[in-house]
Design a protein around this nucleic acid. Sequence first.
DNA 1: ATATTTTATGTAATCCATTACACTTACATT
DNA 2: AATGTAAGTGTAATGGATTACATAAAATAT
Lengths: 333, 333
Amino acid sequence: MAKMSDVAKKANVSIATVSRVFSSPETVAEETKKKVLKVVEELNYTPNVLARQLRKMETKTIVVVVPDITNTFFSRVLRGIETIARENGYRVLLGDTENDITLENEYLKTLYEKHADGLILLTARTDRITIEKLSENYPVVLACEYLEGSNLPTVSIDNISAARKATEHLIKLGHRRIAHITGPMNVILSRDRLKGYKQAMESYELEVDPILIQEGDFYYKTGYNLMLKLLFIENPPTAVFAANDEMAIGAIKAIQSQGLKVPEDIAIVGFDNIKMSAIFSPSLTTIGQPTYKIGEKAMNLLLDLIRGKKLSKNQFVLDDKLIIRESCGFKND
Amino acid sequence: MAKMSDVAKKANVSIATVSRVFSSPETVAEETKKKVLKVVEELNYTPNVLARQLRKMETKTIVVVVPDITNTFFSRVLRGIETIARENGYRVLLGDTENDITLENEYLKTLYEKHADGLILLTARTDRITIEKLSENYPVVLACEYLEGSNLPTVSIDNISAARKATEHLIKLGHRRIAHITGPMNVILSRDRLKGYKQAMESYELEVDPILIQEGDFYYKTGYNLMLKLLFIENPPTAVFAANDEMAIGAIKAIQSQGLKVPEDIAIVGFDNIKMSAIFSPSLTTIGQPTYKIGEKAMNLLLDLIRGKKLSKNQFVLDDKLIIRESCGFKND
DNA sequence: ATATTTTATGTAATCCATTACACTTACATT
DNA sequence: AATGTAAGTGTAATGGATTACATAAAATAT
């Protein structure tokens, strides 16, 4: 593989000139440039990025830590991130943790090893201190999740108000006994969505029977199982707010498995607006998150940090949207 | 940030010794090692990977080119790849092409720039010559897709026989007029699945009406639209084999939108066994691909190539499986 | 006691591109 | 004509770790 010095020699110029042809072509005489580029062509020369990286101490690479790459919600955020990254000459290193904290930690280390210029976390199970420390030394942005009581740059929707909106929708449809299948409680998102649910219930002075709150884990199977459980309690709910679409669909299937119908017998609201939620029958009423935009914004923030810009503010809250479909019926049903 | 020479100075040893403590600790005296490690601790030293990479001319990074990261089929293959990569100290650079050939080409370049040690292609729209040339110089593995007439290392299922199996299943259920919604014809997978479909039809001496073959693009919406079209032809099919699950589900929705039922009125078979296919109602009969295993095998092959091992053979065909669910009914219906 | 081998460590070249600084040449200004 | 300025190019230091080779010291063999 040809290197820069080979090009320089063959073109009868110095290495510096060759380098300049690539990095600041406007400072090189037209004729020289042509000469160099011709040799570059002849030798089929490509700059060795490793050397450049070492010299400039930058990798033009960022790491994205994802809790579950097979979840389309995250892969769509990821796509937003990647697009902006690519447009700015950055590459994306994938860190799929498969919901495993140990792996999450592994990926954080890549920063210290100078393997990446920055980090976007789509999951933040690691303790706050560790992440804050990391953030003091390197560009770090949280997306979707955030850390309680921390001022790290964050992009997300307001999960509390979104969950309140979802629950209120059910209340306005006339439901009084509304269950909530939560996400895992060690995740702030889940706690926020629970909080929103409770706020809605309280503001309509509806009592929340503790048995109506079931802790899930965002997976289909769990939604199914917990819904079954809810169906067999003494006084089953007439509506369920699930903390994500996957569990919501699990719940619907559980309801259908018992010969009951959605929304006629039980209404369901989900969260995330994954692709399947529009296609599934009954289609799912849910909270739509601007996945692509979250990714976009997160990456743009990270770029600002990498470039040493001051951020105007640290917490960015994007708009969510209640998407009304079949799974909870309509007011006049 | 402390560097190796700082550690060396403070520990009163040479840089070489410090380096050895990390790369070949068994050659360093126990006492020296301790001394060095103590200083490493004190200075909070982490090796600069960039320098190592330049020196060793390896990045410990591979690129995976994916046509669509939001498709769970691919993200599951990706997970297999990443797991093996991680276990072997490799990082995964994500190359989501969003089905865009231009982007695909972009990612191929990263190899020439020494940004990665190897490449796994989950899509290969780029012309054969380019890819073969790349493969002559760098470790490249194809997964899922392959290149016609090329001997590149490949991991996939036998799409022809799988498609034949799927179609035969419909034939055995008594269907005679079976349509096929194909993938995009510029993709070898699609052509193979079409070939399998035709083989099955021929072996049962069933005539294939050209209008029953509709070219799709693997997307839900297209499956929906093409199915609508098929419903309104003169003599509509009683069964449809779709080249992937997403289109199959689109087809089912189209059928349902016309007040018809699956499988009672029209039977459907898909391909890929994405998560949704088991959950959807009716659940989808489909061909299951060993996604995780494909990823695993592809990465292991790539590791062999990177390490300069001779491959025992180049084409690895993994087993697929016909998964019978509700969407095509049962023999005695 | 001497020769030989082993073990541990150091020296210095190397990987390849970037860039501060120095220098030359051509042209403009007074 | 003398000086200043700008444009174009070159020289050489630099980034931080790896490693072939050399050397010193210790262990073993004869």
